[in-house]
């Protein structure tokens, strides 16, 4: 073995200070990385770059023809069905609560759109009762949209949302498996981010995302 040059060993307190600096640098670096990825610390998962939200047509809860296209309103879009016992009620409840936290002017600029993935059973009347129950503000109505098949499949796919009928052996009583994301679309019609339904309970951060997208 050859002789290695003598190695200077640091005193322990210098090492300790170095350690603290290193941890601070790590956490700071990660924070900075997150900031560079997203200048605003979005809570939802962002689309980078934003994508144009696909337009679609159907009928609303009042049986009127409805076309979703960039309409100057910030939109929270959710694919669900009215026979859904848990996630859809939960999602619509949270979205309505978040809407209630916005300023009156912002509420006018905000809409919640519920697209049925079960158009066979979700008639306009059914949808009307459903969104009327969860949308508690008459000024900012929650929209329930029925898009008939086969267009619905294409619409859902264009948003990256999936759905399928869960077979329970009955033709009229079945449940749907579906993507449980809520999509946030800005007033220019750009898809900005999505929240997983497990994230929605954090109303403050969901609200902050909406307000940032509204700016």
């Amino acid at each position: 073995m050859q002789d290695s040059p003598p190695i200077t060993v640091r005193p322990w307190y210098v090492s300790l200070i170095f350690a603290l600096i290193a941890v601070a640098a790590l956490l700071g670096g990660v924070w900075l990385y997150a900031r560079i990825q997203n200048p605003f610390p979005y809570y939802g998962t962002t689309y980078t770059p934003p994508q144009t939200a696909p337009a679609f047509s159907g009928s609303d809860q009042d049986s009127r023809a409805y076309t979703f296209a960039p309409q100057g309103k910030t939109t929270a879009l959710f694919f669900g069905f009215t026979h859904c016992p848990t996630i859809c009620p939960l999602t619509l409840t949270y979205l309505d609560k978040v809407r209630g936290r916005l300023s009156p002017a912002q509420q006018k600029d905000f809409q919640i759109v519920f697209v049925s993935i079960d158009p066979e059973r979700d008639s306009p009347a059914q949808l009307k009762s459903y969104v009327g129950f969860f949308g508690t503000s008459p000024a900012s109505k929650m929209l329930g949209v029925n898009v008939p098949e086969p267009q619905l499949a294409a619409v859902a796919r264009s948003y990256g949302a999936g759905y399928s009928r869960a077979d329970t052996g009955s033709k009229t009583e079945y449940q749907m498996n579906h993507t449980t994301a809520t999509y946030l679309i800005d007033r220019r019609g750009q898809l900005r981010l999505l929240w997983d339904y497990t994230q929605l309970s954090n109303l403050e951060r969901v609200q902050a995302d909406i307000q940032e997208v509204m700016r």
Partner: peptide, 16 residues
Amino acid sequence: GFILDPWVALALWSAI
């Protein structure tokens, strides 16, 4: 030499 100081490495690893 800085980053492989056992103190530094241990602190970073624990933080992670």
